[in-house]
Structures are given as structure tokens and as C-alpha cells.
Amino acid sequence: MNLEVEARNIAMTPRWKTEIEERMAALQRGHDDIIHGRVTLTKNRHHKKLDNVAEALVLVTVPTRQTLTSRKEDKTFEEAIRAAFDAVAIELRKYREKRADKVARIEPLPQLRGVVSKVFPNQGYGFILKDGGGEVYFHKNALKGLSFDEVQDGLEVLFESEPGEKGLHATIVQAPHLLKP
């Protein structure tokens, strides 16, 4: 992870820099998803901000090129740093939870062989005669790499099936030449 630490209108103290580095390391601990971090400490000289003169800005970039940002003002830089890191930690936790919820769905390659025996173009379904006998229902949504217009009686197909309400139905239907080696 690349970390930039800077100060504006004030000199950076070693204590602040050490605290920033430790807090950034804590955000990264157990994960390897922070690409870049930047922390800017600014002393506000604006007359309306006499109470909160210390500002900490924390930016964290994650692999999706998304930037999580937190800007906090407080009376001291220590408090502003702590508040900004606490806020960005919450955002980072939400980001990680959202990414963890995404499960890659891998469809099995069709293993069963058959021949299309009946097609009902107006209704968008048909039947496959399995090798070894028996018919399997398929809907046009089960087709992979084929348009429903290409499906004709006698077309050789590979398919996967599962039990349905009225018998077996195909979940994936492909022509053998469409399978990747």
C-alpha cells in the first residue's frame, strides 16, 4: 500500500505521523485490499472555525478504484485523526461486507447428451430426447450460446437437468460445438 501523509498550515509532528501510520496499518490488518492511502492534516485559519481548528482528511483507495473518504474537524489533531479513521473504518467494513456477499456463481458444464425432439416456437419451449430414452423439458431461457430461433428438431445438444413440477427440466442447454475445451 502506498501512503501519503501531509500537513497544511502546520508542521507535521512525529507523534501524529506515527499515529497515522499505525491507524492505516490497522485498517489493512487481515486484508490486502487498500491500494493507496492519503492523510492530510490542516490547521483551519478561518475565523468562523475558532472552536474546531484541527482537520483530518483520510482517503483510502480500494481495488475497485473506489475511494472511501472521511473528513473530521475537532479541537485537537489527535481527536480529528481518531474521528476520521473511525469513520473511514466503518466505510471500509461496509465495503468489505458488500464484497464478501458477492458469491461467484459457476455453472456446471452440461454433461448429458440428447437431441431436440419437439420445439414450440410461439410458446418458447421444447423437449429434448435423452440418450437412453425419456424426454426433458427446456425453456428458451436455458439456452446458452444459442438463440431460440436456431433450435430445430434433430439438433444435438448437451444439457444439465433437475427435477421440476412435471418431471425433468433442462437448466442449461448448449450445442456441443459451443463448449470451451
Rank of each mutant, 00 (worst) to 15 (best):
K94M: 09
Q111W: 02
E4P: 01
F148M: 06
H46R: 10
E55T: 14
H169A: 07
H139N: 14
W16R: 00
Q123F: 14
D149Y: 03
E55A: 04
P63V: 05
V116F: 06
L179I: 14
E22D: 15
L57K: 11
A25D: 13
E22T: 14
V151L: 13
P14K: 05
V116A: 08
I34H: 01
K17H: 11
L112G: 01
Q152T: 14
K72E: 15
D101A: 09
K48C: 04
K98T: 10
K140D: 01
N52Q: 12
A175R: 15
R15H: 13
A84L: 01
L155E: 08
R23T: 11
T67C: 09
K144I: 12
L3F: 10
K140C: 02
E135K: 08
T67F: 04
P163A: 15
A80E: 02
D74K: 07
K43L: 15
I34W: 02
D86M: 00
P181K: 10
H46P: 01
R8F: 07
A83R: 03
E21M: 12
L109M: 08
A100D: 11
D149H: 09
L27R: 02
T13N: 04
D74V: 03
D153W: 00
E4G: 06
K140I: 01
H47Q: 08
I128W: 05
